[in-house]
Design a binder for these strands. Structure first.
Length: 276
DNA sequence: AAAAGGACCTGGTGGC
DNA sequence: TGCCACCAGGTCCTTT
């Protein structure tokens, strides 16, 4: 479900309500996420106060009095703020209940997400230590991408989705950013020049920023922390639009499989002389 | 070392 | 209506 804009939407939605609140109880109904939810999670968290909620890539980092709660939503995870009395739905795996009776509820049908606890320095956490640059930071630009690309031989779409290079760009926004930069998803990274990389970096930032402003993209079931959908899906140019006319030139959008992911592009705007 | 493919899960959809 | 194959927003791990 969630890419960077969806995670950021959730972070912004919950942070104002949870700052300085203390954990009263943690109810773990299902421990089988991507990695087991720590059995002592409640013991660790009870009495701790949330100091700050940050995001690194698609990870939410809850800075507590004496450690970090780390949450990833995988493909199908969501977090909702509600009353602890709210009736449970299937796959509501964990409740974080706070002293003022607010409940943060973790829901994840496919269980690809994770909930972890660490008291080690957060930047050194094994899941975070090797992550690439934040796309919305000042240091992310065309030069950065160009330099790494000179030593690689992969296609551009998996390249920008590689979170060891740049974090947070998932399948939807990778397709959209490449359309915006007029680059075919299968272009070899070494054939792309510096000017094109500068356009691409700007496109990635533009797309992500716009998506955050729209509250993310709702395809099936994404909702923010209050259950509201995101509206960026109305602005998608290529993702999910196979066979429909390109908004720029009218040519039908093409769809194909690149790696294990579905890719969408305009054969005219993104110069379809490249073998898929 | 880097690229590609498989694996982990459930639910929704479309075809027969 | 039922059954089945296939698809889905992620990313770690194994294989090449």
């Amino acid at each position: 479900m969630p890419e960077l804009p969806e995670i950021e939407t959730i972070r912004r939605g919950i942070a104002p309500y949870l700052q300085e609140l203390s954990f009263k109880t943690v109810l773990v109904r299902e421990t089988r996420l991507r990695w087991p939810v720590p059995t002592e999670l409640g013991t660790h968290l009870t009495g701790q106060t949330i100091k700050n909620i940050q995001r690194r890539g698609k990870y939410l980092l809850f800075e507590c009095s004496q450690g970090y709660l780390l949450i990833h939503l995988g493909m199908s995870g969501s977090l909702r703020l509600l009353s602890p009395n709210e009736p449970l739905k299937k796959h509501d795996h964990v409740d974080f209940i706070f002293t003022d009776s607010l409940c943060l509820r973790y829901h994840d049908p496919r269980r690809f997400g994770c909930i972890l606890w660490t008291t080690e320095p957060i930047a050194a956490h094994p899941l975070l230590a090797k992550l690439g640059i934040e796309p919305l930071s000042d240091h992310f630009n065309g030069h950065y991408l160009y330099q790494i690309a000179q030593q690689r031989q992969c296609k551009i779409k998996p390249f920008i989705m590689n979170h060891l290079i740049v974090v947070g760009v998932g399948n939807i926004y990778a397709n959209e950013a490449l359309f915006s930069a007029k680059i075919h998803p299968s272009r070899s990274v070494a054939t792309i020049n510096i000017q094109e990389y500068q356009n691409l970096a700007i496109s990635i930032q533009k797309i992500l920023t716009m998506a955050i402003a729209q509250g993310g993209t709702t395809l099936r079931d994404f909702a923010d922390s209050k259950g509201r959908p995101g509206y960026f899906s109305q602005l998608l140019q290529v993702y999910g639009r196979a066979g429909q006319p390109c908004y720029q030139c009218g040519t039908p959008i093409k769809q194909y499989r690149l790696g294990q992911r579905t890719s969408y592009y305009c054969p005219i705007c993104q110069n379809d002389s490249i073998p898929e």
